[in-house]
Design a protein around this nucleic acid. Structure first.
Lengths: 145, 145
DNA sequence: ATACATGCAAAACATTTGCATAAGA
DNA sequence: TCTTATGCAAATGTTTTGCATGTAT
């Protein structure tokens, strides 16, 4: 598992490679995504960044997120509730487990997923390239309340 | 597998039971959802309904869809591309297989899903109540083109 | 007759875009 | 210096809402 600092350096050098500019806003936005495992929304990142950088605009957050999506360094997660959420730590498709009470999202290990994909590819003839697997439920902590 | 007519009758009697009114618009909207396996969007249903019923408004389609969601007779499918799509034939969570070229959606048999859910519940302690499983790929027909 | 549904327009939301200005390289 | 990024405001696209009118029961 990489540290947030390693991920940050990794992404910054990718940006430099492709001749995108390193701006303070981009660094702050990246840090907001990398220093949490909470799969934040755009709005959450915007608020977070604004505390340190009050002039930052929402449009810049959106533009930066789109840039990061394009270079493959952030994953967009759609949870059917209007606002997208993002994962900058594991920017490749993987299952999510969403607590419907506290809205938290974790990344469970799912050994059977490859088999499941293979099963469907076999049965249907589709060439499967990606997935979006969201499981919904109640986390142990919320079950106690 | 139920016929569209059976599903229609089923849903209409549920509406009557709960003292919702049976209007021509509601019937037309229901038929648009039930007479296809194409998982249509709101806009598609709206266009379809308008050919027979030119005065129908988009707002009514939305309101009817929300009513059908509330009574559990339609499933909303979010595919991260802005517009939701709907399944009136199997209104319970099930996996979808989306062709990224032609945008079609089919409902594959996925025997391993229950095991996968059990695996995650076991490992995490979550009580899993629902899911959203979308596989993306290229369908056999689009592969040939 | 009386509530509920419809249809229109306006509002609400998340997201995108255009453009003048600021600032990395 | 020269191009790209920022920030603002306006535009977009989807979905929701308020309200007067129409209509199912």
């Amino acid at each position: 598992m990489k540290t947030p600092q390693q991920r940050l350096d990794e992404i910054l050098s990718k940006l430099r490679q492709r001749e995108f500019r390193i701006t303070p806003q981009r660094i702050a936005i990246l840090q907001a995504f990398l220093n949490t495992d909470q799969h934040p929304s755009i709005e959450q990142v915007y608020k977070q960044v604004k505390t340190h950088f009050p002039t930052t605009s929402l449009a810049t957050v959106y533009k930066t997120v789109n840039l990061l999506k394009e270079i493959g360094e952030i994953l967009e997660i759609s949870i059917a509730d209007g606002r997208n959420r993002y994962d900058g730590n594991r920017p490749y498709p993987h299952p999510h487990l969403v607590c419907t009470r506290c809205d938290s999202i974790i990344d469970p290990e799912v050994g059977l997923l490859d088999q499941l994909t293979a099963e469907v590819a076999e049965a249907t003839g589709y060439r499967i390239t990606s997935h979006q697997v969201q499981l919904f439920g109640v986390c142990p902590s919320c079950q106690k309340k």
